[in-house]
Design a protein around this nucleic acid. Structure first.
Length: 263
DNA sequence: CTGAGATCCTGTCTGC
DNA sequence: TGCAGACAGGATCTCA
């Protein structure tokens, strides 16, 4: 679920909470991996001043400090009044009930007094929509590395926000083989790839993200970008009709077209 | 420093 | 039907 487009969708829905007040926070399941409970005492004036996204993190800036969400593999926020299995946190925000739900418990929620320091510690790379994000930026980071382009794009300290789906899709659009070593990719290819990363993310955000099985935005709406996937979980290439190859690369599924992405 | 692999979890699907 | 095993959006830690 939660790569940049999905987190962006959740963040946009949550923007209704700008200037709202968190009236109540209740922990429903202590087993999730977060540190919110310990630091909740510091939450003195819980009015939400701004709601933003950075990479795959959603940030609620408070009058003092911030709440930060990372949705892991299966986390989401939902607006509903009845609790469900795998709810971990309950919020009451301006009389509206909100649940943080996360079956696989890979997600995390923090309260931080110093958001700037918190984000520095995450060592997040550039935002794909930053004006400095381009082929030159990518090639500069890749010059001294030997990993495959697939691993490189997964590294959040280089680019923040990409995950398995959009890496596969962007490499297909840029016609680059996922096993290519990054130090052998030309500036023309980097330039094309940077544009395709922006294009695929833009299309996905406009479609509300990708729902594979269980992703929903806080209203329960699914994301429709799956309908536009060209390689991820596809059988046949939409350009040349060659069968799409699925292969495990670093424990993750890689999908590519062996003719369109021969090099 | 880089890169590869294990690990944290539950739910769903597939094949025997 | 039942059950074992593979696999799923990710980040972090350890070891070479």
């Amino acid at each position: 679920m939660p790569e940049l487009p999905e987190v962006e969708s959740i963040t946009r829905v949550c923007s209704i909470f700008k200037n709202a007040t968190i009236q109540e926070i209740e922990f429903l399941n202590p087993k999730i991996r977060f540190h919110l409970q310990d630091t909740l005492l510091y939450l003195q004036d819980p009015s939400i001043e701004e709601i933003t996204r950075r990479g795959k993190y959603m940030i609620w800036k408070l009058a003092k400090g911030a709440l930060v969400f990372h949705f892991g593999m299966s986390g989401t926020l939902s607006f509903r009044s009845e609790p469900k299995k795998h709810d971990h946190i309950f919020f009451m925000i301006d009389d509206k009930p909100v649940f943080y739900n996360d079956p696989r418990r890979f997600g995390m929620v923090w309260f931080t007094e110093d958001l700037t320091e918190f984000l520095l510690k995450r060592r997040l790379g550039i935002e794909p929509f930053d004006s400095n994000f381009n082929g030159t930026y990518l090639q500069k980071y890749a010059a001294l590395r030997t990993v495959s382009i697939k691993s490189f794009l997964f590294n959040q300290s280089i680019i923040a926000g990409l995950g398995n789906i959009y890496i596969n899709e962007a490499l297909f659009k840029a016609r680059i083989n996922p096993f290519r070593k990054v130090n052998a990719i030309t500036i023309e290819e980097w330039s094309e790839l940077s544009k395709m990363i922006q294009e695929v993310l833009t299309l996905a955000i406009n479609a509300g993200g990708s729902t594979l099985q269980d992703y929903n935005d806080p209203h329960g709406c699914v994301g429709y970008f799956k309908l536009q996937h060209q390689v991820y979980q596809k059988d046949t290439c939409s350009y040349c009709y060659h069968p799409i190859i699925k292969i495990m690369q670093h424990q993750r599924a890689t999908y590519y077209c062996p003719t369109c992405q021969a090099h």
